[in-house]
Computed example of a mutant assay.
Amino acid sequence: MDSVGTARLLISNGGESALELTVEPWADTYQMLPEQTWAVVTHSPAADGSWSGTLRGDEPFQVDHRPESVTVWVNGNCFHLSDMEEDAIDSADWHCPAQGAFS
C-alpha cells in the first residue's frame, strides 16, 4: 500500500507501572509495561488515502489519555500493533496490507 494511505502513531509508557492501551473501535486491550514503546499503524479505507477523522476531518487517529490508560481511536480499516523492533504484537484484521511497524 502506498505510504499516502498509511499512518503510524508511537505510544510510550514513561510511567512506573503498567499502562492499559485500548485500540478502538475494536476494543482490543493490551498492557504496556514501563519503558515500552509501541507503534500503532493503520491504513486508509479510502482509495485516495484520506481519513474519516474522529473529531476533525482527515485525521488517522484520536488519542484519549487517563491516569492509567490510553485509548487510540483508529480511523483506518484495520491496524497493526508492533514494538520498536518491529515484532508484531497484534493485528485487528487479517486483510490488512503486509504488516510492519514502519510501513
Rank of each mutant, 00 (worst) to 15 (best):
S91Q: 06
R56E: 13
A7T: 02
G15H: 07
A47S: 14
P34L: 10
V70H: 11
N77D: 15
R8M: 05
E20Y: 08
W38Y: 08
A18T: 14
P67V: 05
H80I: 01
W94V: 15
F102E: 02
E85C: 15
D83W: 07
D83I: 00
Q99V: 03
S44N: 01
W38Q: 08
G49P: 03
L81F: 01
L55P: 12
E85G: 15
V63E: 07
A27L: 15
V40G: 03
A98K: 05
A101F: 02
E85V: 12
A98Y: 01
P60H: 03
V63T: 01
E86T: 09
V63H: 00
W51D: 01
A92D: 13
D87W: 12
G57I: 15
A39V: 11
G76A: 07
W26S: 02
D93C: 05
W26I: 06
R8K: 06
R66N: 15
T6P: 04
Q31T: 11
I89P: 02
S52H: 10
T6S: 03
G53S: 08
Q31R: 13
N75T: 00
L21M: 08
D58L: 04
W94R: 14
G15P: 09
G5Y: 00
G49R: 02
T71P: 10
D87I: 09
M1W: 04
C96D: 04
L9F: 04
V40P: 01
S103W: 01
V4N: 10
N77S: 13
V74S: 03
G15W: 05
H65E: 15
A18P: 13
S69T: 01
W51N: 05
T42A: 06
G100N: 06
P45K: 06
F61S: 05
A39S: 10
W26Q: 08
I89K: 00
